[in-house]
């Protein structure tokens, strides 16, 4: 429980109350109780499932037998859902680390299986070969690195959200979904909780980019029908640096005769010194600085460059 104290003397030992002239203010931290929610959910589910199961059971059983059956069914259903809610923090942590847990189990399980089938040395050789293959084949290496970035980014985003994103009064943060590699980086699906909006995330994009070690981050709606589902695109690679060719000339015949373009009169005097300083325009007056703003331009219009190649620079 966080506690903020203003004007507290050293003699004070905390707690609510007044001692002398000092006032101790305690900011109450509202803790979201999963157990309390689980209890409420248990009773609600039992109240719905129990009678419903009992009514269905009366079709097959005597009503006196259907009532305890409905009670049992309601208790089981309510208990299961209440358990899920009660252990939700644990499940959420497992979800955060699910790819890593799955990968570790696969690696360990595979090692144990191969060790039983052959021997530990050959198992090590097989594992080393797989790692070497991934490292030596560029396409595999790039794809593996992209997947690793997906794992890293989910944890970095969780750190971001914990650090500087506003939460609801229960301390809930956005739910981080799966990440997938895209050519420029990673795309992460995020589910916003009530109290958060896409606009709030937009104000933090710079910080998110820094935390994810990325160039930039963009946020867009994942669905047009639901504002809670968003995509965070973490951009760390520039894929548009190369030249993109145009396909327009690919199918053109090669024996097309070239047209003769009319040769216009080519001006030879191409330097400033070649153009004499003739007073062909009115000298520009220094604009009056009245109220810090020059007057609007009126009067003589600019000359068109219709036939004057010297004005082609415009």
């Amino acid at each position: 429980m966080s506690k903020r104290t203003f004007g507290t003397r050293h003699t004070n030992r905390g707690g609510i109350g007044r001692r002398g002239s000092s006032v101790t203010m305690i900011q109450t931290n509202v803790q979201y109780s999963y157990l309390r929610t689980a209890k409420i959910t248990f009773y609600v589910v039992m109240a719905i499932v129990g009678p419903f199961a009992a009514v269905i059971s009366t079709h097959y059983l005597h009503p006196l037998a259907a009532v305890p059956l409905g009670l049992v069914a309601g208790t089981i259903a309510g208990g299961l859902i209440a358990c899920i809610i009660a252990i939700w923090p644990v499940l959420r942590a497992i979800w955060w680390w699910l790819p890593e847990i799955t990968l570790a189990m696969l690696l360990i399980g595979g090692w144990v299986y191969l060790q039983d089938q052959i021997n530990p040395i050959l198992t090590g050789v097989i594992y080393a070969s797989i790692i070497a293959t991934i490292g030596l084949i560029p396409a595999l290496r790039r794809y593996t690195l992209a997947l690793l970035w997906c794992l890293i980014v989910r944890h970095r985003l969780r750190t971001c959200f914990n650090t500087f994103l506003p939460t609801d009064r229960h301390g809930h943060l956005p739910f981080i979904g799966l990440a997938k590699p895209i050519p420029v980086g990673e795309r992460v699906r995020v589910w916003l909780r009530p109290g958060l909006s896409l606009e709030q995330l937009e104000t933090q994009l710079g910080k998110i980019a820094v935390a994810c070690w990325a160039t930039s981050v963009t946020v867009t709606k994942a669905r047009t029908s639901n504002s809670a589902a968003i995509y965070l695109d973490i951009k760390r690679r520039d894929v548009l640096g190369g030249l993109v060719g145009s396909p327009l000339t690919e199918d053109l015949p090669t024996d097309v005769p070239a047209i003769t373009r009319p040769v216009a009169t080519v001006p030879a005097q191409l330097d400033l010194a070649d153009v004499p300083d003739t007073h062909d325009t009115e000298p520009t007056e220094r604009p009056a600085k009245k109220n810090g703003r020059p007057p609007a331009v009126t009067g003589t219009p600019a000359k068109t460059a219709t036939d004057n190649p010297d004005l082609d620079w415009i």
């Binding site: 190369g242 145009s246 000339t249 053109l252």
Partner: peptide
């Protein structure tokens, strides 16, 4: 409704002249 980053395809001067010749022809 959402901006997309795009790299424009590049037509060289020679390609443009080739297209102009063909179209005129």
């Amino acid at each position: 409704g959402i901006p997309h980053l795009v790299k424009a395809a590049y037509l060289t001067d020679a390609q443009i002249h080739q297209l102009v010749d063909y179209v005129t022809w």
